[in-house]
């Protein structure tokens, strides 16, 4: 039957496109798994920042080595993904890329105390920061979510730094996160994943504020020149 043949033809062609799609996905999945493992290793290394001050620079150095490995992975990923189909397969590396954005931003903050820009993060991963019609890049949303992850981690660090007796760090963290918070408010977020993650930022901010407040009412904050002297007060409820 002639019509049947046409239908057969249509379905065979579609099956072929499905097959080649599956093959590409398989390759991408394998690479993403490797990259993911490296990122988990890096996360584990960096846990030391919460309990051992002296270990921080060492951990940063080790993590930098892992970034180099991840960069190799991204290089292969870039080759595996057809240049036009970045967003077709985006799901596969979205999470792991967000984690890398976070890790890189964290390491850079620990090292020099500044915010890693979109370009810097992309450069460390060996990919382009610019979204073009074709090609592999670091998506702006993934980068921003990485920054939100960073804020959560820093809120934890603020608490642990105080436990360690480091009263300077919470202030530094507070200033940094506040600035990020102000930055995120400039974005017009719609009701998507980024927005949901951003909504959680206020809890991190609150936590950090409370730490700084606790320190300030106990006069534990390091003195700056222009700060007025505050009278001592003991708090019963905190």
């Amino acid at each position: 039957m002639c019509e049947n043949e046409l239908i057969n033809d249509i379905f065979t062609k579609f099956q072929q496109s499905l097959d080649s799609d599956q093959e590409t996905r398989e390759v991408i999945r394998t690479i993403c798994k490797e990259i993911d493992q490296i990122s988990r290793e890096a996360v584990t290394y960096l846990q030391i920042i919460h309990h051992k001050e002296e270990g921080i620079s060492q951990a940063c150095l080790k993590t930098r080595g892992l970034f180099e490995k991840a960069r190799q992975g991204y290089l292969r990923l870039k080759e595996a993904v057809p240049p036009t189909d970045y967003f077709k397969y985006h799901e596969h590396w979205r999470w792991v890329t967000q984690r890398y954005s976070f890790l890189i931003a964290l390491v850079i903050w620990l090292e020099v105390g500044i915010l890693a820009s979109h370009e810097t993060v992309a450069e460390i991963l060996g990919i382009s920061p610019i979204e073009e019609k074709e090609g592999f890049h670091l998506d702006i949303e993934d980068y921003l979510i990485g920054l939100l992850l960073l804020c959560s981690e820093l809120s934890r660090l603020a608490v642990n730094a105080v436990t360690r007796g480091d009263y300077n760090k919470p202030l530094q963290i507070s200033r940094f996160v506040m600035e990020l918070n102000a930055g995120f408010r400039l974005l017009n977020l719609k009701n998507d994943h980024l927005r949901k993650r951003f909504d959680a930022l206020k809890y991190d901010v609150k936590k950090i504020e409370e730490v700084v407040y606790d320190l300030s009412i106990r006069q534990l904050l390091p003195k700056t020149a222009d700060e007025p002297k505050i009278e001592d007060s003991k708090e019963a409820d905190s």
Binding site: L115, S117, Y143, E179, A182, G183, L186, L187, N188
Partner: peptide, 10 residues
Amino acid sequence: PVLAMFKTAA
């Protein structure tokens, strides 16, 4: 520079 970066992102 942080806010400038966010303005670009926005």
